[in-house]
Amino acid sequence: MADNVVWHHHPVDRDVRAAQKGQQPAVVWFTGLSASGKSTLAGALEQILIDQGYHTYLLDGDNVRHGLCGDLGFSDADRKENIRRVGEVAKLMADAGLIVMAAFISPFRADRQIVRDIMPPGQFIEVFVDTPLDICRERDPKGLYARAERGEIKQFTGIDSPYEPPLAAEVHLPAGEISIAAGVNRLLQHLHQQGLLKAGYRLVDLESVA
Rank of each mutant, 00 (worst) to 15 (best):
Q24Y: 00
I50R: 15
S161T: 02
A181Y: 06
R79H: 03
F124K: 06
S34D: 12
G43F: 02
S179I: 01
L68Q: 12
A182C: 10
P25K: 03
G73K: 00
V127N: 02
R109A: 15
M101R: 02
G61M: 07
Y145Q: 05
E207W: 10
P25T: 05
K38E: 08
I180H: 01
I153M: 12
K21H: 14
S161W: 02
D111K: 03
D117S: 14
F104C: 02
V28H: 08
V100Q: 07
G43L: 06
T157K: 00
D60N: 10
Q47C: 10
A110W: 06
L92D: 04
Q189V: 04
V12N: 05
A42C: 12
Q193E: 07
L68H: 13
R84V: 01
R147W: 00
V209Y: 13
R65F: 09
I153H: 09
L187G: 11
T131N: 05
L191S: 10
E170H: 06
A19Q: 11
R109Y: 12
R17P: 13
P174L: 03
E164L: 01
G151T: 08
Q123M: 15
S179R: 01
R116I: 00
T157P: 03
L59P: 13
E88P: 03
F128A: 08
T40S: 10
V129Y: 05
E46P: 01
D117C: 13
W7D: 15
N185L: 04
K154N: 04
C69H: 03
I99D: 03
D111G: 05
E177A: 15
L45F: 08
G22F: 02
A148H: 13
I180S: 02
G67H: 05
G143T: 07
L187C: 12
H8N: 11
Q189M: 09
P120W: 04
L49D: 15
A148I: 10
T40K: 09
E81Y: 04
P132I: 02
G97A: 06
A18P: 11
A90P: 08
E152M: 07
A210N: 08
A110N: 13
